[in-house]
């Protein structure tokens, strides 16, 4: 990943692969796949919950949250003693994060994208950039081999991007990482998928499932990522997603049959591979396929 102020750069050979689990729509079982995948992977792994608006992987994985860290962005602060209320900053801001009325200038940090444009152009150098909290991160040691990193966006804070980037940065790049992406195809999904080696797309064999799968396939192809599909709640004969994948030459890595017992266990927050040996075997095969794809 090319970032401007590259923090720690590890040599290529010691970097662990990054797999992401994504889905064109919510409710397909994306988190279930991510959690179970991390559970059976058989080596040291970190699961990163990037669904920062509604993080829920921790509901399945018991472990004490430790090492709470804040995520901040840089937003303008106006020194009222230097400001002459010319209003240039408010006119420049594309996001309406500033307003200047009579003798007061106001900043709305939650609208700010942190571009620094206002502070660059202020003729009186009245604007400096200060930290503004947008969310938090937690580290949970789930077991000797699994660490869960959770990013949570503060309520009322609209920009998931900075929290996603921060929680991804928290990982140890030397070991395998699995990212649980937010649902959909929005810019937060793009932030999650940046720098990923392999993407697992979770879908259902329904017309909605197919429609939303096509959207996320479009996105991962645009980003030139290698990917495959997991069909959840598979019903014999419901072949439309399978047919689409054949036509498009997309590998189907796993089919999880529809089973009320799985749905019930999931609703209770259970880990499926612990309850159903047939699923454990299936997820182990999924790991093998992902590793094979890694080469």
């Amino acid at each position: 990943m090319e970032t401007k102020d590259s923090k720690k750069v590890w040599p290529e050979e010691v970097r662990g692969p990054i797999w992401a689990v994504a889905s064109g729509k919510g409710g397909t079982g994306k988190t279930t796949v991510a959690v179970n995948l991390a559970w059976v992977v058989g080596e040291k792994v970190q699961l990163v919950d990037c669904d920062v608006e509604e993080p829920d992987a921790h509901l399945f994985l018991a472990g004490d949250a430790s090492a709470l860290r804040e995520v901040t962005t840089q937003v303008p602060w106006i020194d009222q003693s230097k400001c002459d209320f010319c209003g240039l900053c408010a006119q420049f801001c594309q996001f309406n994060a500033l307003a200047v009325v009579s003798r007061v200038s106001l900043v709305f940090p939650e609208l700010c994208h942190g571009c620094r444009g206002c502070s660059m152009l202020c003729p009186h150098q009245a604007i400096s950039m200060v930290s503004h909290r947008v969310g938090q991160m937690e580290i949970r040691e789930i077991g000797p081999r699994l660490t869960l990193l959770t990013g949570t966006l503060d309520v009322g804070s609209p920009q998931a991007g900075p929290v996603i980037s921060a929680v991804k940065e928290l990982r140890d790049p030397r070991i395998l990482t699995i990212l649980d992406a937010p649902p959909g195809t929005s810019c937060s999904v793009e932030s999650t998928l940046r720098g990923v080696n392999r993407v697992v797309l979770v879908t259902e064999p329904t017309p909605f499932g197919l429609h939303d799968l096509k959207l996320i396939v479009e996105l991962v192809r645009l980003l030139r990522l290698s990917f495959g599909v997991v069909i959840n709640r598979m019903v014999p004969g419901q072949d439309l997603v399978r047919r689409y994948c054949e036509e498009e030459d997309i590998p189907v890595w796993l089919e999880i049959p529809e089973d009320r017992r799985y749905a019930e266990a999931g609703a209770r927050g259970r880990i499926l591979v612990d309850e159903f040996p047939e699923l454990r075997a299936a997820f182990v095969r999924l790991v093998d396929q992902l590793k094979e794809a890694d080469g």
Binding site: A90, F95, N96, A97, A99, V101, F108, L111, P158
Partner: peptide, 28 residues
Amino acid sequence: GHGAGVSSAQKVVDLGVTAVVSGHFGPK
């Protein structure tokens, strides 16, 4: 796209009115 409340309010301020009658005023 966003910040409609802020920019609408800025516009109202620039119009120099004394009072505004509407339904819901957002926090910004």
